[in-house]
Design a protein around this nucleic acid. Structure first.
Length: 420
DNA sequence: TCTGGGGTCCTAGGACCC
DNA sequence: TCTGGGGTCCTAGGACCC
């Protein structure tokens, strides 16, 4: 049996841990640039604020109802997430983190009759130890555990834990479950199923397997099987990420090439640091930048430049050089670049890097220097030491008007808060 | 005017091989 | 006039997740 643990309104709940005065009030967390709503408290949901709504479109609700807005604070969420996951890890032989706010554990070491109480204890332990409310769903497959966790979240009577064990429970749960809310059924699949007259998870499950396969191909068939109680979806994480991205939307379109170059250098340095943390190197790098796809009044321009490296590397100065050269090749003067990013691709373990016989670089020396730079970063905070190419310009590139302090992760911020 | 960021998997079609 | 068939590998794009 799987137990899925899902944090309720995670980002909002994280903010509330340090602002208990916001309990019971409408709260939302915004995406980068304070653009869209990415997390809502129950009170905000009740006001009709949809997930993903741009802030400017719900401005009147926010002002009238006094909705409290936060800019996203990922180092806070990441830190609280680690604490939740470590409690989960303590309660199982097998744990798999699925996202920043969800993890699956197996609970077969607990007798069936005691599994619900066992998970209720976990729910209480997380609430007491971290301060974040969670819901758990217990079922023989991950997809059914997801269904169960939604019931646990929706109905207070479950005390945070809902079980789907018998066939009778399964049929009853699927009968009242909207097809679009099933894990793995996205926008497109939902539209296809609706036009085939299917509105609930049970109606989908009652069709033959071939129907699922023909309409939705392999992913659809897997979901169908999981709804029938066959455990077929494996979410085992690969030891290494296969791609690493850093990208941002800017508050205002960038028109200065030098400003865009600084941004690309920063993105690239950030990606490279992650690459080293997982002890890997990349063989390819992609730089992109484009105009705002929401603007119909300007000519759209997509800049996409892929670089294949002669020798796989994780060295920041080297990668930044390639990234900037790529940007300079493809940069179009006058374009209104609203979003840009760097993606590292073809990632391999650093132990598998094949040297080049005619290489002119002293890679051993470069990597010693890199280790020192990383060490300085770790001790004195990110951006303690930078490449010249990363030096911040005067330009205001981002907007975060509602950011909460870094309560848990940055000593200097804690000192600042105390001083205030 | 204002609209996020970071991933994975699957599939169809093209390139290429013999 | 008439010009194959089968296989693999790679890639771009789509769909999905949070």
């Amino acid at each position: 049996m799987f137990a899925l643990c899902d944090c309720n309104n995670f980002f909002v709940s994280c903010e509330r841990v340090f602002r208990p005065d916001l309990e019971g009030k409408p709260v939302v967390v915004l995406s980068g640039n304070d653009g869209c709503v990415v997390s809502r408290s129950n009170e905000a949901k009740a006001l009709g604020i949809p997930m993903g709504a741009p802030l400017y479109q719900i401005r009147s609700i926010v002002d009238q109802a006094g909705v409290v807005c936060f800019s996203s604070n990922f180092s806070l969420y990441g830190d609280l997430s680690d604490r939740v996951m470590s409690i989960l890890r303590q309660h199982t032989m097998r744990f798999e983190q699925y996202s920043i706010d969800e993890g699956f554990i197996t609970i077969d070491h607990i007798p069936a009759a005691e599994q619900k109480t066992y998970c209720e204890r976990i729910v209480r332990a997380i609430k007491q130890g971290v301060g974040v409310p969670v819901s758990m769903g217990i079922a023989p497959t991950k997809t059914l555990a997801k269904v169960a966790s939604k019931y646990a979240k929706k109905f207070k009577g479950y005390h945070g834990v809902c079980v789907i064990r018998t066939d009778e429970q399964r049929v009853k749960a699927l009968h009242d479950f909207e097809i679009g809310d099933v894990w793995g059924i996205g926008r497109k699949a939902k539209a296809k199923l609706l036009s085939a007259g299917i509105t609930t998870a049970l109606q989908f499950a009652e069709r033959p397997a071939a129907f699922a396969q023909n309409l939705l191909h392999k992913p659809g068939l897997l979901t169908w099987q999981e709804l029938h109680g066959q455990d077929v979806i494996d979410i085992t994480q690969l030891p290494m990420k296969q791609s690493i991205t850093t990208s941002r939307t800017f508050a205002h379109a960038l028109t200065e090439q030098s400003v865009l170059e600084e941004q690309i250098a920063n993105f690239c340095a950030h990606c490279a640091r992650q690459l080293r943390t997982q002890h890997s190197a990349c063989q390819q790098l992609l730089v992109y930048a484009h105009t705002s796809s929401f603007r119909s009044d300007i000519t759209q321009h997509y800049l996409n430049e892929i670089v294949t490296l002669p020798v796989a590397t994780a060295n920041t100065p080297e990668l930044v050089n390639y990234a900037l050269a790529a940007l300079r090749r493809a940069y179009r003067p006058g374009a209104l670049y609203k979003k840009a990013g760097v993606v590292l691709l073809k990632i391999i373990p650093d132990s598998a890097v094949v040297p080049d016989l005619f290489d002119t670089k002293d890679r051993e020396k470069d990597s010693r220097l890199q280790r020192v730079l990383d060490h300085i970063d770790d001790r004195h905070g990110k951006r303690a030491i930078l490449l010249g190419a990363q030096l911040p310009s005067d330009a205001e590139v981002y907007k975060t008007e509602h950011k909460s302090p870094l309560y848990t992760t940055d000593l200097r911020d804690i000192i600042t808060v105390k001083a205030q």
